[in-house]
Amino acid sequence: MMRRLTILCFILTITTVSLVTAQAPSLFVTADRCMACHNGLITAEGEDASIGTAWRSSMMANAARDPYWQAAIRREALVHPTAAAVIQNECGACHMPMHRFQANAEGRQGEVFVHLPLSGATTPEGLRAADGVSCSVCHQISDENLGEPESFTARFGMDTVTGAGQRQVYGPFDVDAGRQSLMQSMSLFLPAKGTHIQSSELCATCHTVITHTLDADGQVVGELPEQVPYL
């Protein structure tokens, strides 16, 4: 009897995991799908306004590579091993957002240490983790609850239903149909106008960080406003 139940539980688990995995669309692409077209931009005055190169050397792009952050989260996990998974999932939201949100969409926790060192990333998941705060993170954030506490600490709104190839990314301009299909063919995203992309409230979703304090049993017992420049 126990053997049958075990087999049944195993089949149900596999089926559930398969269904959850199959239902989660691929939410992100890495920045290499964007940079080729969004580099080499020269203004009428001759200034290099390449978005790709500006981003690549930014703290955003290197959020996952930040050695201080890696060391800090390692220390926290070593000191508090029972909360290691929660810590990785929480901190990965802003430092490895593509991996973390994709994992959450698939019913998993975001992981940090499994992707270190980032220089060895070859799998799609590893590459998403290494790409930091990449183009398809910020440009997919919707205007839902922007500026409101509900959007802080990386709780921004994002479409988690539409499949790859039909997902929208937002920019400040209207894009004609020709350029829409051109960008869709390479980036797999449909560009759409969304002026909220220019608002500081969008940045505040990750840069208003209010972390939770846990007691010895892992229960939330308080909050700490770690980073609140928007407020």
Binding site: A54, S58, M59, M60, D66, Y68, W69, A72, I73, R75, E76, H80, A83, I87, E90, C91, C94, C138, Q198, S200, C203, H207, V209, T211, H212, T213, L214, D215, A216, V221, G222, L224, E226, Q227, P229
Partner: peptide, 18 residues
């Protein structure tokens, strides 16, 4: 009490992004 690490300050990131 467990206090997660303080993340580095990123005001400069916001400036750069904007």
């Amino acid at each position: 009490m467990i206090r997660p690490s303080r993340l580095h300050r990123c005001e400069s990131s916001i400036t750069l992004f904007i």
